[in-house]
Simulated assay, not measured.
Amino acid sequence: MFPFHFRLIQKYTHAQRTRYRTPLFHINLHVRGLRWYRAAGMELRDPGPFLSLIAPGTVLEFEFGADRENWVIQLATDHVRPAACAREVVVVHENREVLVPAFLELEQAVLVHWLQRFMAMRESFLDPHPLNRLTLDLGVAEILAFMIREHGQTSHADSAASLLKQRIDHDMEFRFSIKALCRECGYSDDHLRRLFQQVYAISPGEYRRRKRLSRVLDLMGNSRFTLKEIAARTGFRHVSHLSALFRRQFGIPPSQAMRHLRLSNRQRRL
């Protein structure tokens, strides 16, 4: 994944007019109240909802009214920089430059989804437990992939990679290998792996691993299953396999993480 250091995830609702140069990478979800906005040669007036990416070093100018609602994620990174085109940013991943659209208008139904995602990411950000870093990483990867996928027309690579992603997402108990899922999609293993990496800037194996850990965390915090039952429901033959992967990712045993998550959820419901 990309080496990002999360500095802030915040919702803003106050009127404001300002101009400044940002030292950080910004991911912005604009909901309402924006009167005008200038960044990297792009100018907007009274726009509807949109997602935007702002590279470090960019000069921002904007004015919000009293009806303002927008969300901002600020990240410190050396792997994002301005592109030659004002409506793109360059993201460097595994020594390869990826052009990502810097602006994308949102329909109302899509806006609701992203509001929920930003709120969930803020909850994870406010709890400094290392387990929540996975939720944040997946959130940023989802935003970047969405902006790449939704920009322009869908290509053959997009369609094939999207089909594999759907297969991975629907395999909730992680019973099938990536090779088997590629065969279901009608493509060779090597070819579809390359297309997936090209479209989503992450290998299908790594994407599946992170989805699997995310599912483990969800069951730990939101069910009464034992660790053995969670392992069985997420495709691990033995609890020891789950424990080894979990320790490598988070540096703590899964039993400790499960106690923390269930205690946090109980306290949140009080």
Rank of each mutant, 00 (worst) to 15 (best):
4 F>W: 14
8 L>E: 14
9 I>V: 14
13 T>Q: 12
14 H>A: 09
18 T>R: 09
18 T>E: 12
21 R>S: 08
37 Y>R: 03
38 R>L: 10
38 R>H: 09
39 A>H: 03
40 A>D: 15
40 A>R: 14
45 R>D: 00
46 D>E: 09
48 G>C: 06
49 P>R: 04
49 P>S: 06
53 L>R: 05
54 I>F: 07
60 L>E: 11
61 E>R: 14
61 E>K: 11
62 F>C: 10
62 F>T: 07
63 E>L: 12
65 G>A: 11
66 A>N: 04
70 N>M: 04
77 T>E: 06
77 T>I: 04
77 T>Q: 04
79 H>M: 07
79 H>Q: 06
81 R>A: 13
90 V>R: 06
90 V>F: 01
90 V>E: 12
93 H>G: 04
94 E>H: 12
94 E>P: 01
95 N>V: 09
97 E>Y: 06
99 L>W: 01
102 A>L: 02
102 A>T: 03
103 F>Q: 01
106 L>F: 14
107 E>C: 08
107 E>I: 05
111 L>W: 07
113 H>L: 13
115 L>T: 01
116 Q>M: 08
117 R>F: 03
122 R>Y: 00
123 E>G: 02
124 S>Y: 00
126 L>A: 10
127 D>Q: 14
129 H>E: 10
130 P>W: 07
130 P>R: 08
132 N>Q: 15
133 R>G: 12
135 T>V: 12
136 L>H: 05
136 L>Q: 11
136 L>S: 02
137 D>T: 09
146 F>M: 10
150 E>A: 15
152 G>M: 05
153 Q>M: 06
153 Q>R: 14
155 S>H: 13
156 H>E: 15
159 S>Q: 13
159 S>W: 07
160 A>R: 08
161 A>T: 09
162 S>C: 05
163 L>D: 06
166 Q>G: 06
166 Q>T: 12
167 R>T: 00
171 D>H: 09
173 E>F: 13
173 E>H: 12
175 R>G: 09
176 F>I: 02
176 F>A: 13
177 S>E: 08
180 A>R: 11
181 L>N: 00
185 C>N: 03
186 G>D: 02
186 G>Q: 03
186 G>W: 03
188 S>M: 02
189 D>C: 05
190 D>W: 03
192 L>A: 04
194 R>V: 05
205 G>Q: 13
207 Y>I: 10
209 R>Y: 06
209 R>L: 06
210 R>P: 01
218 D>M: 12
219 L>I: 04
219 L>A: 10
221 G>R: 04
229 E>M: 05
234 T>A: 00
237 R>N: 09
237 R>F: 02
238 H>L: 07
239 V>K: 10
239 V>Y: 15
241 H>Q: 15
241 H>M: 12
246 F>R: 08
247 R>T: 11
247 R>F: 09
247 R>S: 11
248 R>T: 08
249 Q>P: 02
249 Q>N: 05
250 F>T: 07
251 G>S: 02
253 P>D: 11
253 P>S: 11
254 P>G: 06
256 Q>T: 09
262 R>D: 00
263 L>F: 00
264 S>M: 11
266 R>N: 00
267 Q>D: 01
269 R>K: 08
269 R>H: 10
